[in-house]
Amino acid sequence: MKGYNFGFLDEASKREIRRKILKAIAVPGYQVPFSSRELPIARGWGTGGIQITLSLIGPNDVLKVIDQGCDESVNAVNIKKFINAVTNVKITTDTTKASIIQTRHRIPEEKMNENQILVLQVPYPEALRVFEPSEFETRRMHAEADYSRMWLYLYEDIVTYREISIGARYPVMVNKRYIMDPSPIPRWDIKKLNMAETLYIFGAGREKRIYAIPPYTSVEPLEFEDFQFRVENFMGEKCILCGSDDTFLDEIIDDSKGKRIYMCSDTSYCNKLLISKKVLYKR
């Protein structure tokens, strides 16, 4: 796009964000403050992720953007269009072909490798915020690894509901040091964070924080010995399109029949399966 620097942000801003990313990678799970820049999108709409992507992207990168697993949702499409307009990079929907994937609320079903980076958009970077409103206090807790109140929060949850009621944003312990908010990904995706080959970078534009999970880092969901972490159970339901029963499914109400139907949340993976099964996928 004429009149703009490659990747929209000026080089000094990119350098600052890259430095903060390096720091985040050096201290896995630690939230690094950064000077979130103005973008042509309001803060809180993926600006953390966009700034990370724009600072990392080069002319030879291949970009994929998803929103809750979907390549075609409004947020994903607009971010894709914007980044393409300011960088001219190739865009793909294929998880395996992308070098950078920006995502909101999901991690793709297909296994990612060492040459890929997953950029996650984060609304609330502070996992401890649910019980502690003071930033001063939460920072102190992180610094001293004083996490008993996080565990107490889980204890109270178990006492009240007989299980831990957190769905998305399930708190995890990174590298046995920092408790981290994994962004609102479902529990289903939490296990993909542990000892992954891929670099995960988390960006919160409104809250001005960047944090990361480098490849091959231990990431453990918080659990008690007798109340272990478990993922969503779809009770044997299958994707109505591709027939998968081993993916994270979205529950949708079929308006014409008034019944629940289930579909893969990761649309590109679902499409791929359909093509490989030679099933014609009609919209």
């Binding site: 008993s148 109140r149 109270e156 006492v159 010995e225």
Partner: peptide, 21 residues
Amino acid sequence: KISAGGNIAENLIMAEWRNIE
């Protein structure tokens, strides 16, 4: 605002207790 038991549990948790029962 936290249950009476939870208030005590906090100290136990701090001492690395990780079994609800």
